[in-house]
């Protein structure tokens, strides 16, 4: 990947600035990764059609991407995109959708587009809530999560979207976060080159709505950075060696209140302690140590600690999950046209 200055990308690919996204929103990061991927692959933007539904994430291409874009109805972007792609297969068709848009109201279209293996790259911005409408619960909100419509905690379980889309038949499936920009950009490039349905879920920060969800009680200006670090803390990358020289202590009270007693209890092990934000557990104490088992035993009888979590517990797996081949829909339709011959009238 060659890195050019930001101005180059802005002038070439962005129709309008500033965006109307909230400060620190992940949508800008995703737009950035997308145009870099296009540029790296030298795909002429005249050939690119971006289709989106409704939601903050739908605004990434429309109005901001300087190319053809179709901003459709809530959840239906993939169906619109299928129509356009089938009729003009030269269009490099990319769908931007949200978790509510793509997995909630549009979930049916998502699995069917994957099943057809229609050559469309889908980027699903998962901010785990309905951002645009005010932070309601979504089919991706974690169990117990606080949103404006789950004030007592989300009673539902979230989808595992990559498994869902993989089993529906997509031929490229990946998950990244807005922290993992380099990997995300590389993944978008792979998706754009896949002759079939590609799906990338991007965990994205929505500082406006996620502060409640993740219990980020600090100032709003520090929220975006904290969420990004939380994405790093709460994920691991498939296929990469895992560190196991740490543990998490999940405190009964605030981590600040428990910090001292953990420190005292573990003083013999000289661990490095740090308070971190974690998607599954909230604000907890991370304990870096080479003597994991002993530390674990030692923490067992500490009253202030609710539970000790292993490194992988509650973490979300990132990476590329599917890369395979299967007959592509539009190609098959063209084969049928050739087979029935009589193509006297043309398109």
């Amino acid at each position: 990947m060659t890195v050019k200055n930001l101005r180059y990308y802005r002038e070439k690919f962005v129709r309008h600035l500033p965006t109307r996204f909230c400060p620190g929103c992940g949508n800008g990061v995703i737009l950035n990764a997308f145009v870099r991927a296009l540029d790296d692959l030298s795909i002429p933007q005249e050939r690119v059609l971006c289709v989106s539904g409704i939601g903050c994430s739908a605004w990434i291409p429309n109005p901001y991407f300087s190319g053809d874009s179709l901003h459709t109805t809530h959840g239906r972007a993939l169906a619109f995109a299928t129509g356009a792609k089938v009729y003009n297969r030269n269009l490099k068709t990319v769908v931007f959708t949200g978790d509510g848009d793509g997995a909630g109201i549009g979930g049916n279209h998502l699995i069917h587009a994957a099943r057809r293996n229609v050559e469309i790259t889908t980027i699903l911005v998962n901010n785990m809530n309905y951002g645009m409408t005010g932070g309601q619960t979504a089919p991706t909100t974690l169990y117990g999560g606080l949103t404006t419509t789950t004030p007592y905690g989300n009673p539902e379980n979230p989808f595992n979207l990559t498994s869902l889309v993989a089993s529906a038949g997509a031929t490229y499936v990946a998950r990244w976060s807005t922290y993992h920009v380099i990997e995300l950009t590389k993944s978008i490039k792979e998706a754009l080159q896949n002759e079939g349905f590609s799906f990338i879920e991007v965990l994205s920060q929505c500082p406006t709505q996620q502060r409640r969800m993740f219990g980020l009680s600090g100032t709003s200006s520090e929220a975006p950075q904290r969420i990004l670090e939380m994405f790093l803390e709460s994920t691991y990358i498939r296929g990469q060696p895992l560190k196991n020289n740490y543990l998490y202590a999940i405190p009964k009270k605030t981590p600040e209140a428990v910090f001292k007693s953990v420190e005292t209890k573990l003083s013999g092990f000289h661990p490095k302690l740090k308070i971190v934000d974690h998607m599954a557990f909230g604000r907890i104490i991370k304990i870096n140590t080479e003597r994991v088992e002993e530390v674990k035993r030692s923490l067992k009888d500490l009253d202030d600690v609710e539970k000790v979590a292993d490194p992988l517990e509650g973490k979300i797996e990132l990476g590329v999950f599917v890369k395979c081949e299967r007959p592509e829909f539009v190609k098959t339709l063209h084969n049928i046209i050739e087979r029935v011959g009589e193509n006297r009238y043309g398109v």
Partner: peptide
Amino acid sequence: IASISAVLGASWA
């Protein structure tokens, strides 16, 4: 819903 949506996408193509 998908049917009318696909029709509209195709029309713009």
